[in-house]
């Protein structure tokens, strides 16, 4: 099995530089990192990939069994690290991928030497003494939203490149599909993401960790960022003056600066 092809691995940046592995969350694919990659790749080797089932990955490698738990996604991470023979790489995970990184670092400590958790949440549903921001019914509603857009999905996938002369980096090929997922696969990923509870796994993090949260994030509110920071003694918390769940898109410069600052402080 060719993991590089399976996970649509792309690598940029100086060959002998320290390695950053950037992992997308639920929703889109590695193109989520497009606006921060240029700044990061000046001084770091940047590895991008798509989880099996997303973006340009090999859909034939997808199985409901494996990708119904976060361990399956963490296995993708460790297998990509093995395929590239990475040692002590910095893993940057967005959203649910922040927790995937925690699991991967525990499974392959020789591969992952530091974590950057972008808008992380170890549990999205409220629990006794814990506010994740959502109820179980809310998550059902999200699944219904996915269903509702299934029929109208093609219009969202259609090439919409026109009127973007100022963003030449958004090549035509990636507008087609970077947030398009097979509906059955998206449903499994959504369930796995939003029904997960990884709070107990946080205590196993021993590597230097940056928790990067947004000031206004409906998916991962500030309380959740504080919870993650408190649960990981080796962590450092940075709150970006940004709105939404995707600071790498809404505030790419600040996001890149925060990541670079963290990397430089520990080198």
């Amino acid at each position: 099995m060719d993991v590089r092809r399976r996970n649509n691995v792309t690598v940029t940046g100086p060959a002998d530089a320290p390695v950053l592995v950037l992992a997308h969350g639920f929703g889109c694919d590695q193109n989520m990192w497009r606006l921060v990659v240029p700044a990061l790749a000046e001084r770091y080797r940047v590895v991008l990939f798509d989880y099996v089932g997303s973006g340009g990955s090999d859909l034939s490698a997808w199985s409901q069994e494996r990708y119904s738990s976060l361990d399956g996604y963490a296995q993708d991470v460790t297998e990509v690290c093995e395929a590239l023979d990475l040692e002590r790489a910095v893993f940057v995970g967005h959203s649910v991928s922040a927790m995937t990184g925690v699991l991967a670092a525990r499974a392959a400590p020789e591969r992952i030497g530091a974590l950057v958790m972008v808008a992380p949440s170890p549990r999205y549903i409220d629990d006794e003494g814990y506010r994740g921001g959502f109820t179980a019914e809310d998550i059902d509603e999200l699944l219904a939203s996915l269903e509702a857009n299934y029929l109208g999905w093609s219009s969202a996938m259609a090439p919409l490149i026109m009127g973007n002369p100022d963003r030449p980096e958004l090549g035509k090929e990636l507008t087609n599909s970077f947030c398009a997922t097979d509906p059955d696969i998206a449903r499994v990923f959504a369930r796995t993401t939003f029904l997960s509870d990884s709070r107990d796994d946080l205590k196993d993090v021993t590597v230097p960790t940056l928790v990067l949260e947004c000031a206004q994030d409906v998916i991962a509110p500030r309380e959740v960022g504080a919870h993650v920071h408190a649960a990981i003694p080796s962590s450092h918390l940075v709150t970006l003056d940004a709105t939404g769940h995707c600071p790498q898109l809404s505030a790419p410069e600040a996001t890149a600066q925060a990541i670079l600052g963290f990397l430089e402080s520990r080198l």
Partner: peptide, 13 residues
């Protein structure tokens, strides 16, 4: 947050 905003940011439309 997971689909609409990223798509809009990336595609402009």
């Amino acid at each position: 947050e997971t689909h609409f905003a990223p798509l809009l940011r990336m595609q402009g439309e």
